[in-house]
Structure formats: C-alpha cells, structure tokens
Design a protein around this nucleic acid. Structure first.
Lengths: 107, 107
DNA sequence: ATTCATTTTGTAAATAAATTACAATGTTTG
DNA sequence: CAAACATTGTAATTTATTTACAAAATGAAT
C-alpha cells in the first residue's frame, strides 16, 4: 500500500494520528474531562504535553489523549488514579509499538 | 470486532477520528497552512467550522482538516482554489461514506 | 467519626491565542 | 496593463489558557 492511497482509505490514516495535536480545550471537549482535571493529571506526571517544544500553551498528542480516555474508563470502574495510570501504561506501550510499526509499513 | 478492541487496534480508531475537533492554530500546525489562509477559505465557503455549535472560536473536524490537506496538494499541482475545491468535493464524499460505513460496522 | 492522603474543583490576575474588519500586496491570465 | 483571484498584514477586541493560590469532595484506615 502506498502513501497516497490514504486519501480515501481511512483505515490507515496514521499520518493524521501521528501529526494531530490538540489544545487543552478541545481535548476537554473530546474526552469530556474538565480542563482543570487534565492539568492536575499532568501536574502529577500521569500525562505529558508538548508545551516546551511547541509554544506557551499545552498541546496533547494522540497518545496522551488516548491515555486520558483509558484512565477515565478505569476511574469509572473504581480504580484509583494511580492504579488507573499504572494499568494504562502497558496499553500505551502497545499502542506506541503498533503506531511505530504501522508507520513503517505504510509509508 | 467489538468496540473495545479499538483500544489497541488503532487501524480502526474511527471513534477518535469521529470525535476529534481541532482549533485553527493546531490545524495550521498540522497542515502547514497559515491561519489567515484557512479563514479565507472558510469565508469563501470552501471549508466549514463548527463555531456556531461549539463555541466562539473555530473548530474543525477530521473531514475539514482532510479537505484542507487535499486542497493544498492540488494547489501545489497548479489548480486554482476553486478547481481544487471542486475536485476535492468528490473525494470528501467518499471519505464521509467510508467513515459512516466503518462506524456502523465496528461499533 | 475523625484523621489523613488523594483527587477534584474554584477563582483572580496575567499571558497567549483567535476574531473581525479593514486594507494592501501578490499572482495569474486574457 | 487591467482585472479577477488569492494571499497576507495588522490593530483593536474578545476569548481561552496559565499559574498559583486555596477550598471542597472522596475514600480508606485506625
């Protein structure tokens, strides 16, 4: 499969997933997590933003947005924040590996 | 395939593509199109934002970001803005149909 | 039940980003 | 070169975000 097939084959739009970065307000809308809570999680080191590299305001990549969604699910299931974060770590590693692999295969 | 497999199977993270909305600044970073130009295209009716529904500032969904990227490609190939927009319309319809279909199949 | 740690939420003042509406400058083509 | 098309500039205003303080919830253990 070649890069340009991506145009209509969304199943493999990793370029987009890889490029996309989103401000805290939009992340809040996407995930339904209050901005205040997102900042707290970041303060605790559970998620990370691209602030330093990108600008003055927080920017989150796909990996971290996904992380938030997963943590939120586990919180709802009754896990503590730390436990959720720990559990999610493993999944995130899988996601990262898959993204890396797919990036290699389809570019 | 069920909804929760999405967690590690990124090939089918349509939920994300469907939910994601991005501010004009981030769209500009993602696409390398100046914000000024994005606003101009919107003024011309070539792309649309979710401003009215969402808030005071412009928010773009996946479809419109994709549209911008495609238009940009065609502009580089020498098409005029209107011609590019017209050409892209057809591709966008395909993208929309595919998104709709995949949403139905994998949820 | 009260203590204690964890987690979420509130808010004011300052900074950063986006909007609008005006216009100016490029660019292309007949 | 004229004329339509397209991009870019910018000042003043509005909106969003940040930080840093603190106050409430929440929950578990003693």
């Amino acid at each position: 499969m070649n890069k340009n097939d991506n145009i209509t084959n969304l199943s493999f739009d990793f370029e987009f997933l890889d490029k996309v970065i989103v401000g805290i307000g939009e992340v809040s809308q996407i995930t339904n997590i209050p901005t205040r809570q997102i900042r707290y999680w970041e303060d605790k080191g559970i998620i990370t933003s691209l602030t330093e590299k990108e600008g003055k305001n927080r920017r989150y990549d796909y990996k971290n947005i996904k992380k938030m969604l997963l943590i939120k699910e586990l919180l709802d299931e009754g896990y503590t924040l730390d436990a959720s974060a720990e559990k999610v770590k493993k999944r995130i590693i899988l996601i990262e590996e898959m993204l890396k692999k797919l990036k290699k295969d389809y570019s």
